[in-house]
């Protein structure tokens, strides 16, 4: 690689625009966000079940009528 072909600071914006790729909405796949949201969803369900079935419903004595 010669120094002449290396991108200079002046040509950097041009090089960026060359690397920019337009994609459609359906091609955008935020799997990271999906994973974070999914873990939060599972956590919410597990904690809700724990709160309801263990903390609320399982502690004797409880109201029988």
């Amino acid at each position: 690689m010669s120094t002449e072909s290396a991108p200079s600071e002046a040509s950097a914006p041009e090089a960026d625009s060359e690397r920019t790729k337009e994609i459609s909405l359906d091609e955008f796949e935020p799997y990271g966000t999906l994973a974070v949201t999914g873990s939060y969803f599972v956590l919410l369900l597990v904690l809700y079940a724990l709160l309801y079935f263990v903390e609320f419903a399982a502690h004797a004595p409880h109201i029988i009528e």
Binding site: H59, A60, P61, I63, I64
Partner: peptide
């Protein structure tokens, strides 16, 4: 425990239970 009631003047709060 699961025993929890609010006691309001003028009303009689009621429930039944068994202490195991």
């Amino acid at each position: 425990s699961g025993l929890n009631a609010t006691i309001i003047p003028g009303q009689i709060a009621t429930f039944s239970t068994r202490f195991p």
